[in-house]
């Protein structure tokens, strides 16, 4: 990482710690904010958070690794999470999955070369009556069929 980038990130994290507070109970909110902005929480960011909150870096890493929506590895600009739990599974998740993989040329757990999309599975989205469902960033898409899903993915930037 460039020094300038590091400085900017440090500044940003300092601002967030100021906004949410440096108490432990702010940790998850700060991590969510960084995840949202940078699409991952880098090792440098983790250590900056640890320093400013007076906790150990491994504690930050431990918390990140616990929650599915936080990641330490860079992700694409858009994170697509396809629900794989029972109701969506029964409603035809497999066909959507196959179509999406074929269209993007990547598997789940991977990111497209142009950093546009990361594909992930997720557990129940609470859309069981409208499955198959997927989440793109924080937006939810339901009643998917393979063609629809692919069209939606092709439209996102």
């Amino acid at each position: 990482m460039l020094v300038v980038e590091k400085n900017n990130l440090s500044y940003e994290i300092e601002r967030m710690v100021k906004e949410y507070g440096s108490d432990r109970q702010s940790l998850l909110q700060i991590l969510q904010a960084i995840q949202k902005k940078y699409k991952h929480i880098s090792d440098f960011a983790q250590q900056e958070i640890a320093r400013l909150m007076n906790i150990h870096p491994v504690e930050v890493y431990s918390v990140i690794s616990f929650y599915s929506f936080l990641s330490t590895e860079p992700k694409g600009r858009n994170i697509v999470r396809l629900c794989k739990t029972i109701a969506c599974d029964m409603a035809g998740k497999d066909a959507v999955e196959t179509a999406v993989k074929r269209e993007l040329g990547i598997s789940f757990g991977e990111t497209t070369n142009d950093q546009r999309i990361s594909l992930e599975y997720t557990n129940c989205l609470g859309m069981c009556d409208e499955g198959p469902a997927m989440l793109i960033n924080e937006k939810v898409y339901t009643h998917l069929d393979p063609e629809m899903a692919v069209n939606i993915l092709n439209e996102i930037k």
């Binding site: 557990n123 129940c124 609470g126």
Partner: peptide, 11 residues
């Protein structure tokens, strides 16, 4: 934190 598979009433 409604997460039980098949539950969406809270939504």
């Amino acid at each position: 934190d409604e997460g039980e598979p098949g539950t969406f009433k809270d939504r």
